[in-house]
Amino acid sequence: LKGVVVAGGVLAGAVAVASFFLRNKRR
């Protein structure tokens, strides 16, 4: 169960970083 929580956190972080980079590329 702990691994699932960690994986979810990593996935959420990756999505946040990806969206951040996409926003920067638009400018």
Rank of each mutant, 00 (worst) to 15 (best):
V5N: 10
F20R: 11
A12T: 09
A14W: 08
A12G: 01
A14K: 11
A12W: 11
F20K: 13
A16D: 01
G3Q: 12
F20D: 04
R27F: 00
V5W: 01
F21P: 00
V5G: 04
K25P: 15
S19W: 09
S19Q: 11
V4H: 09
F21K: 09
A7N: 12
F21E: 03
V17W: 11
A18E: 01
G9K: 07
R26K: 06
V10S: 00
V6H: 12
A14Y: 04
G13H: 15
N24Y: 15
V4I: 08
N24P: 05
V15E: 01
V5L: 05
A7S: 10
V10W: 02
V5P: 05
A18T: 14
G13E: 14
R23D: 04
V4E: 00
A16K: 13
A12E: 13
G8H: 15
V17L: 01
L22I: 13
A18V: 10
R23S: 07
V17M: 14
V6Y: 10
R27G: 09
R23A: 06
S19N: 12
G3K: 15
R23C: 03
V17H: 04
A16L: 01
G3W: 10
L11D: 00
K25D: 02
A12H: 06
K2L: 09
V17K: 06
S19G: 12
R26M: 05
G13P: 07
A18N: 03
V6G: 06
A7V: 10
V17Q: 05
K2M: 14
L1K: 09
V4R: 08
V15T: 08
V17N: 01
L22K: 08
A7P: 11
F21L: 10
L22Y: 10
G8R: 14
K2R: 09
A14F: 01
R27T: 07
L22R: 14
S19A: 13
N24G: 10
V6P: 08
S19H: 15
V15L: 09
F21G: 03
G13S: 00
L1H: 10
A18P: 00
V15Q: 06
F21Q: 07
V5Y: 00
K2W: 06
R26L: 00
G3I: 10
K25M: 13
A7F: 07
K2C: 03
L11Y: 15
A14P: 05
V10E: 02
G8P: 12
R26V: 11
N24E: 07
V10M: 14
R26C: 05
V6K: 15
V6N: 05
V10F: 15
F21Y: 12
A7Q: 15
L22W: 01
F21A: 10
R23G: 06
S19F: 00
L1A: 04
A18F: 00
F21I: 09
V15R: 13
A12P: 08
G13T: 03
L11I: 01
V6I: 07
V5F: 04
A18C: 11
L1N: 06
G3E: 00
V4S: 15
R23H: 10
V15P: 00
L22G: 00
L11G: 07
R23N: 06
V4T: 15
K2I: 11
V15Y: 11
G8K: 12
L1C: 04
A16C: 04
V4D: 06
F20A: 02
A16W: 07
L11S: 03
F21R: 13
A16N: 07
A18D: 00
G13R: 14
L22F: 04
A18Q: 09
L1E: 11
V6M: 15
G9F: 14
S19V: 13
G9Q: 15
L11A: 00
L22Q: 04
A12N: 07
G3L: 12
V5R: 13
V15D: 00
G9T: 13
